[in-house]
């Protein structure tokens, strides 16, 4: 499968919006989209990455066609996240967006689908770290970056329980 086409980058963004809970605007604002895309691709290869994105895209299209959001949410849960092949990749992508860390894939996955040479736990780039979504998700700055300013810690938190 060749995923070196603009559509797959779009699928990747759509998928990322769905699994992270952040908007396209937020994700693009991190400046990390293409770095993450190429990192994931470089580790697991086009075949499985493409399969994940295609699976997502098909679900997304179907949900829109049927005007039924649960097609997508059920699909993400039961066709992607519980899948032995796609689940670990999808979870890794969420973690990557939130922490800038790629976590080494679990050994059952490696045994079944083949160990990858670049599949080690690492921070994708030092300047990806401050772009992690974990921090805005909980209404704080990434520790050591994007400081909010003197005394801001006295103000009520910006996030709420639903």
């Amino acid at each position: 499968m060749d995923i070196d086409t603009p559509e797959f980058m779009e699928y990747f963004l759509d998928f990322s919006v769905a699994v992270t809970g952040f908007s396209r605007f937020d994700l693009q604002g991190t400046g990390q989209v293409s770095l993450y895309f190429s990192t994931i691709r470089g580790i697991i290869g086009d075949q499985i990455f493409g399969e994940l994105l295609q699976t997502f895209h098909d679900l997304d299209r179907k949900a829109k066609r049927e005007n039924n959001q649960s097609v997508l949410t059920d699909g993400i849960s039961f066709e992607i996240l519980v899948s032995g092949k796609l689940g670990p990749i999808a979870r890794n992508i969420i973690k990557l967006w939130y922490t800038a860390i790629w976590y080494q894939l679990p050994s059952p996955w490696q045994e079944k689908f083949g160990a990858r040479q670049n599949d080690i736990t690492f921070i994708v780039s030092p300047y990806a770290y401050p772009e992690g979504l974990l921090w805005p998700a909980i209404g704080v700055n990434p520790p050591g970056a994007k400081a909010p300013g003197y005394g801001t810690w006295s103000e009520p938190p910006s996030v709420k329980l639903s």
Binding site: G21, T99, I138, L161
Partner: peptide, 23 residues
């Protein structure tokens, strides 16, 4: 975060869980 994602939390639910368990 890792624990929540490993339990297949994602999207808005994940964000809420993080606020609930970290903030």
């Amino acid at each position: 975060l890792r624990d929540a994602v490993n339990r297949n939390r994602y999207g808005k639910d994940l964000r809420q869980e993080l606020i609930d368990r970290i903030s």
